[in-house]
Design a protein around this nucleic acid. Structure first.
Lengths: 233, 233
DNA sequence: CAGTGGTCTAGACCACTCT
DNA sequence: GAGTGGTCTAGACCACTGG
């Protein structure tokens, strides 16, 4: 385990734990380095990682301070399944469609494939405490992943992708709202025209290849998107 | 201008410009440093900043590659005004309320002030091409900013805050949806019960102080939240 | 095995902030 | 003017990847 990482973890623990109180100065880097028997660049790297996380603020001529307030973590490429599980909501999934279809214009454009070529199509109803929460439609390029229905019902899609050795790298998201169609209303136990939260997302791996396109609808009384974000310095 | 910054800008320009094509290797760091007459840490710092932006990917034992696809930029703390202006939509603002009120429980909690203490309340109708697009309600702690109605109609709130010397640092956002009330429908030229996109946001400066709380509604036929995000390595 | 990025050191000078 | 972080150098060894 790298030294700078060990140090940043210690500092983070100290902040979390209250040993370093908000607003307090961290002490100058050179002395900190001497005290720890590390070089200054190593100490700086540790501090920088916490600045990137939003836990510390540096000011030239002043020092390094612990941020006052509740910055928890920046937006992550989150999985609805993981979000629900973290919130103690006991997610459940019903796979309604798991098939191969020709790519529509929209799907082909999102995945960077020729129109009409084969793609996997998966439709899942996501429940929490037995109540429908979201209806998830995903398209994946062929040959990337074994889309086993049992596995899809037991865990989230992102977790399946990661365990298949796919390194998720970035995603392009769009969040909007619209009224439910009759079919959507029935699936989500809502009424026709009821407000729905919508999200489209294309996910890319670290080579820049599109690995997933999703078109999802959420019941806004049951789910909202919450996230923390940091201003780029 | 720092050397590493100059280099990262040159590299970014080369990527944008097509001189460095997606998937191409950047060449090893030590040789690059020698060729440019820089030290390796400086070159690494330049490369790292582009990795953070999502333009490059490093793999040990392999090299540094240009990412294949269209990663533009991660989510920023964006201003609706700036978003609209960047999209060529000619934003206009009508200030409907600009006053001081006692803080409600919700507002007091968001801003970290005592309940009932004075806060600024600003309500603005934001239009694009003359059509209502959003209704923005903001609360600000007292004494932070001169809330001049003319200035609020000429630019965005964030720009006003930045020019007042406030360093925006982070924000906590929540995006949801619900049906419009009769009053909201009238303001936005919608019908009662029409789906609306909602966003609550608390913004913090670099000392961790809450500097703004906003409770906004958007017409989903006219606006959606679009952003790119990177997976934290 | 050769080549790559990942980590680390020990120094140096500069720019900024505050008193 | 004293103290801080910001930048930069010139080396070194290690861990991982690929042929």
């Amino acid at each position: 385990m790298p030294l700078y990482f060990q140090l940043s973890q210690q500092l983070e623990a100290a902040i979390e734990h209250g040993a370093l109180t908000p607003g307090s100065l961290l002490g100058n880097e050179i002395e900190l380095a001497a005290r720890l028997g590390l070089s200054r660049p190593t100490v700086r790297q540790a501090i920088q990682s916490l600045v990137d996380k939003g836990l510390l603020v540096r000011r030239r001529g002043v020092g390094t301070q612990v941020v006052h307030s509740q910055v928890k973590r920046p937006l992550e490429l989150s999985s609805l399944y993981d979000d629900l599980e973290a919130a103690g909501q006991r997610p459940a999934t019903t796979v309604l469609v798991n098939t191969v279809v020709p790519a529509s214009t929209e799907v082909a454009a999102a995945l960077g494939l020729p129109e009409g070529s084969d793609v996997h199509r998966v439709e899942r109803l996501r429940l929490a405490h037995g109540e429908p929460m979201a209806y998830l439609t995903n398209f994946l390029p062929p040959g990337l992943l074994d889309l086993d229905t049992a596995q899809l019902e037991a865990t989230g899609l992102y977790r399946l992708m990661r365990s298949a050795g796919i390194t998720l790298h970035s995603a392009r998201q769009s969040i909007g709202a619209r009224g439910a169609t009759a079919a959507e209303a029935e699936r989500l136990a809502e009424t026709e025209g009821a407000p729905l939260l919508t999200m489209q997302r294309t996910t890319f791996d670290d080579t820049g290849r599109a690995v997933e396109f999703g078109d999802h609808i959420y019941r806004p009384t049951r789910y909202s998107f919450e996230f923390q974000l940091l201003v780029r310095p």
